[in-house]
């Protein structure tokens, strides 16, 4: 469903990950781990198609990815229902009732997003995934500011999604209680990235002209 092969990506002109590869089949969950700053967000943004890879290949179904990052993409002056309906219309996804139920938002239907707590906002942001109707979820730290009960709701939603043939790629540090593959990104740290010594080129004479680090 989603195949990533020998992928290298960069952030702010600096290489962060090198040679990442994995396969995500329908019904599977893949959890990305690694210390802060290793490039989890960069990798997810690259896979989601928001930034071009430096090298490597990403095979994803056309219009099959739903991406959720730290920011929820909510409008403070719109209600819960309006926010969800907007994204449902944009993605041409299913009606929103199911999503409201799955993330326990029914009671908050007509509350303005600015009056939600941080955890409620997060739940709304995750409910958005359901209304996209897309098979592959790409999630960046989805459980930030969620309480224990909400994390369980989220895990249930991921399970239901996978049972229906979907799959999820999740960067997270906590244990979600999901049956999932875990990919540690530490071995893929790029040369010269944080914490690794490498030979220094002289300012005027890069070792390989076309591989000049300054012109990534």
């Amino acid at each position: 469903m989603l195949t990533v092969d020998a992928l290298s990506c960069a952030r702010g002109g600096l290489a962060v990950l090198h040679g990442v590869g994995f396969v995500l089949n329908p019904g599977e969950v893949l959890i990305l781990r690694g210390p802060n700053g290793i490039g989890k967000t960069t990798l997810l943004r690259t896979v989601a198609g928001l930034q071009p890879p430096v090298a490597g290949r990403i095979d994803a179904p056309a219009e099959g990815l739903a991406y959720a990052a730290h920011a929820d993409g909510l409008k403070a002056q719109m209600t819960v229902v309006e926010n969800l309906e907007f994204w449902s219309a944009i993605f041409g996804g299913p009606p929103i009732d199911e999503a409201l139920r799955a993330f326990d938002l029914v009671g908050l239907r007509s509350r303005l997003a600015q009056n939600l707590s941080a955890g409620q906002k997060r739940r709304l942001g995750l409910a958005r995934l359901l209304v996209t109707g897309r098979p592959v979820w790409i999630l960046d730290e989805p459980t930030v500011s969620l309480d224990r009960a909400s994390v369980a709701l989220f895990a249930d939603a991921v399970r239901a999604h996978c049972a229906a043939g979907g799959s999820a790629l999740i960067a997270t540090h906590i244990d979600l209680g999901l049956q999932a593959e875990v990919l540690d990104l530490t071995p893929f740290r790029a040369e010269g990235a944080p914490g690794e010594a490498s030979p220094r080129p002289r300012a005027d004479a890069p070792t390989d002209p076309f591989d000049d680090e300054a012109f990534l």
């Binding site: 002109g13 600096l14 010269g192 990235a193 944080p194 914490g195 690794e196 010594a197 490498s198 220094r200 080129p201 300012a203 005027d204 890069p206 000049d212 680090e213 300054a214 012109f215």
Partner: peptide, 17 residues
Amino acid sequence: EIRQRRLDALEARERLA
């Protein structure tokens, strides 16, 4: 400009190391 770019790359690496 080219030298500046190389210098920036070196400095960035220096900061990260």
